[in-house]
């Protein structure tokens, strides 16, 4: 059970890292995610069935996700469409594309196909439990992605990307084209989301064009839960917070799934719960801000 939550939290954590980049770093609420997650899943599934090496599959999935993000950024940049609408447009178009990739099917099973997870289980050859093997693999993968991402945000272009979400004028004043940065940022975000989708398909044993519904909301909920854990301005801790948030979120969803029936809850109610989680997070963080503001106002009086 706990291994399951951790593995799922880590797989979806890659997606949450993507959501974190757009929503928090770029301040570009990007809904492409709902389309690029299943894009990664279906592309991965089709490539595995065709007998490609999973590594090649992941490269293709990464590129496809980046392309999806680029489309959103271009619609936003060139046609001056609000970022939310640009994302919805790409997401909607991706739905048809995903069905095309699956050759006009809505889903495909991966039961008897070689995946990274069957590979890692074989590699350990029964020395550890299957769940533990998956966990070791996912910890390694997510750690590599996290460290690479941290390094990226310390490079010149990464730093400028961070400034873009906070102060676009400053980025322009420093001689950088914000349109290019948005392509890089949104592209990278969706590439991560697609990779996450690729892992999810292999973990779940199927790819479904509908598996992306509400993904961006669950990603946002994970980011917000993570933000309650600790405060920092260091990117390494911020990405760690995102991953912990994702695991916590999966934990909460697990509780909802397994103990929810006591209050007559079904798995269908999970999306409602996710939304309510976000609303609660918003209320709590708003009150927190008000509390700190009140404290600031009171402080000078105390000094008197």
């Amino acid at each position: 059970m706990i291994e399951g939550i951790l593995v799922e939290g880590l797989i979806y954590g890659i997606m949450v890292l993507g959501v974190f980049i757009t929503f928090r770093v770029l301040d570009f609420p990007d809904l492409t995610v709902d389309g690029s997650f299943p894009l990664g899943a279906v592309l991965m599934a089709v490539m595995l069935i065709r007998g490609f090496n999973p590594l090649v599959g992941f490269l293709a999935v990464f590129a496809a996700g980046f392309a999806a993000g680029t489309v959103t950024a271009l619609i936003h940049n060139k046609l001056k469409v609000p970022n939310l609408l640009a994302g919805i447009l790409t997401m909607t178009m991706l739905y048809s594309i995903n069905i095309r990739i699956l050759q006009n099917r809505a889903n495909v099973p991966l039961i008897r196909t070689e995946t990274v997870f069957t590979w890692i289980t074989k590699l350990f050859g029964g020395t550890v439990f299957e769940g533990t093997a998956l966990l070791i693999l996912m910890i390694a993968v997510v750690l590599i992605i996290k460290v690479l991402l941290d390094l990226f945000f310390h490079t010149d272009v990464g730093l400028t990307l961070g400034a873009l979400g906070c102060n676009e004028q400053m980025v322009i004043t420093q001689g950088v084209n914000p349109e290019v940065l948005k392509i890089v940022g949104v592209g990278l975000s969706n590439a991560l989301v697609a990779v996450s989708g690729g892992f999810a398909a292999q973990y779940l044993g199927f790819a479904d064009v509908n598996m992306g519904i509400g993904i961006v909301v669950s990603g946002l909920a994970s980011v917000m839960i993570g933000e309650f854990l600790f405060r920092s301005n260091r990117i390494a801790l911020l990405t760690l917070r995102v991953l912990l948030g994702s695991i916590l979120f999966k934990g909460i969803m697990y509780l909802g799934r397994y103990y929810g029936y006591y209050i007559k809850m079904t798995p269908n109610d999970l999306k409602l719960i996710t939304g309510i989680l976000i609303i609660i997070s918003l209320i709590v963080s708003k009150n927190k801000k008000m509390l700190t503001l009140l404290k600031k106002k009171e402080a000078p009086e105390v000094l008197k």
Partner: peptide, 15 residues
């Protein structure tokens, strides 16, 4: 750092 290298940014870690 962002201001010091004005213009196009690369994948270099300047700081």
């Amino acid at each position: 750092t962002i201001a010091y290298y004005k213009g196009c940014k690369g994948l270099r870690k300047s700081l």
